Simulated assay, not measured.
Amino acid sequence: MSQRHVLGISGGRDSAALAVYMRQTAPELEIEYFFTDTGKELPEVYEFLGRLEGFLGKPILRLNPDRDFDFWLQEYNNFLPSPQTRWCTRQLKIKPFEAWLRPALANGEQINSYVAIRSDEDYREGYVSGQDNLKVHLPFRQAGIDKAGVMEILEAAGLGLPDYYRWRSRSGCTFCFYQQKIEWARLLEEHPDAFEEAKRYEKNALDHGSPFTWSHGESLIELEQPARLAQIKRDHEKRMERLRARRLVNALASDELIDNDEVYGAGKLCITCHK
């Protein structure tokens, strides 16, 4: 049976580290790297993809060249995606992946998909295809590689982190609804034009009867008010202080390894977007 090996790159830390790890530990595999582009990624994501391609020595295939977020927003009557209706994950991540591999699977090829779920993420599971000849592998979990291990892999490779990790904890759409309040506040600071675009999408959705706003319980217009922004930043700092106090037992722990999943709880995320 013919074999293919594929690895999805999200533009984030873990999937990039897995690409590096597989190149170093299984150089004999001809791995196809792919990125499902929503058309609404942070500019830092594209810059990091370029750096990663340089290290891997081969291109990362871009899926979704034609049907981006704007196309599917129209298809869904201008209703925003949300944790309750994650049409963005379905239409912009999962379906393009399935369409790409469908001919090979139909021809009976064995597809090996490598997913960057770490050993410290017991609560996460990989994509389940239902196809006998599509096998999902979790190399980090098998090798016992956790978040600190991922950081070590990227540093040793000379890649470091995508620049957005200065202010945001995960990849995905610029205006992903899974962002924390503090990340929306920082998006306003880092990319005000993208924040304004998100506001326009939100207003248009509300005008069309969408029950959802990007951030739970308030619109971006409400969130960007100076008093509200100050409150969000104060609340975030209080959470950080509590986390630092709990971490004092480990003198080796540092703020550099703290991300918002740790501060706010990992919750339920789109595994195809954020790895």
Results as ranks from 00 to 15, higher is better:
D70Q: 10
W72E: 00
L73C: 03
L73S: 01
Q74W: 02
E75K: 15
N77C: 12
N77T: 13
N77Y: 10
N78P: 00
F79W: 15
T85M: 14
R86E: 12
R86I: 11
T89V: 07
Q91V: 05
K93E: 08
W100K: 11
P103C: 09
L105V: 14
A106L: 15
E109A: 15
Q110D: 14
Q110A: 08
Q110I: 09
I111Q: 07
I111N: 08
I111A: 08
N112P: 01
V115C: 01
R118I: 02
R118F: 12
R118L: 12
Y123Q: 10
R124F: 07
E125D: 13
G126H: 12
V128H: 14
Q131E: 15
Q131G: 02
N133S: 05
N133I: 03
K135N: 10
H137M: 07
A143W: 01
G144D: 02
G144Q: 09
D146C: 11
A148N: 13
A148M: 10
G149A: 13
G149I: 11
V150K: 08
V150R: 07
V150T: 14
M151P: 00
I153D: 10
I153V: 13
L154T: 02
E155S: 10
A156L: 12
G158M: 10
L161F: 11
P162T: 11
P162H: 07
P162Y: 08
Y165T: 11
Y165W: 14
S169Y: 04
R170D: 06
S171W: 02
T174N: 10
Y178W: 15
E183C: 05
E183N: 06
E183Y: 03
W184S: 04
A185P: 02
L187W: 06
L187F: 04
E189F: 05
H191D: 05
P192G: 01
F195V: 09
